[in-house]
Amino acid sequence: MLELDELVMDFGGFRAVNGCSFRVEEGSVTGLIGPNGAGKTTLFNLIAGALQPTSGRIRFLGEDVTTLASHQLFHKGLVRTFQIPHEFHKLTALENLMMVPPSQPGESLFSNWFSWSKVKSAETEVERKAYETLEFLELSHVAHQRAGNLSGGQKKLLELGRTMMTDARLVLLDEPAAGVNRTLLRKLETKIEILNKERGYTFILIEHDMEMIEKLCDPVVCMAEGRVLIEGDFQTVRSNPQVLEAYLGETTGDAA
């Protein structure tokens, strides 16, 4: 469903992504691992259209999307989260979620003046869904707090919550587990599995938490210095000597 072909991204003289190619199959949960600064987040920015690659191609659902802007990709079913939470800080947590669904009737100046009842009924539905999502993320009690005032972990959850507010085809999750407590983490894992198995979402998951990668991801792609080091199932990747050296450390066994 997603094909990356020789992607290169230069920041000035620095090459953050250096000829990256791999494919993501529909219905899979692909893990993306690698040391800090390997270029994982930059790769997400390229896929999601937030950055334009220096060279290389991106195909999504059989279509060349290399030059599309991020809002256009969203409408094709590609949703992403940010590693550093990008909350709308003056909006409430609830509003942060309610703004997500695409093509809401109330987003047009004219329907707000001329077909208010349609706007209101759509709002009720969006609001219900947003409350549901907040409840799932255990954020109901802060629904009406400004998002800028939430804790770091709560912002992280809100980030994840936004992806649940729309019907996505491909979801890019950038370290969703960082800063989230263990019990909630298990719940998130279950949710990702459900969305994957029952709703058919495809995921790419960046994580440093190997437990989560092992549990959810097949295949796993390991990046280092802007390239794909190796790609395969978790065991293959984990026991690869290059991965051990570059990322997981010499002392093998249970890297967590």
Binding site: M99, L109, V119
Partner: peptide, 20 residues
């Protein structure tokens, strides 16, 4: 929703784009 969207764009342009 129009106002909500505008405030979201004001608060964080990148995220608003990513949300379509």
């Amino acid at each position: 929703p129009w106002g909500r969207m505008m405030r979201a764009i004001r608060d964080n342009e990148g995220a608003a784009k990513a949300m379509g």
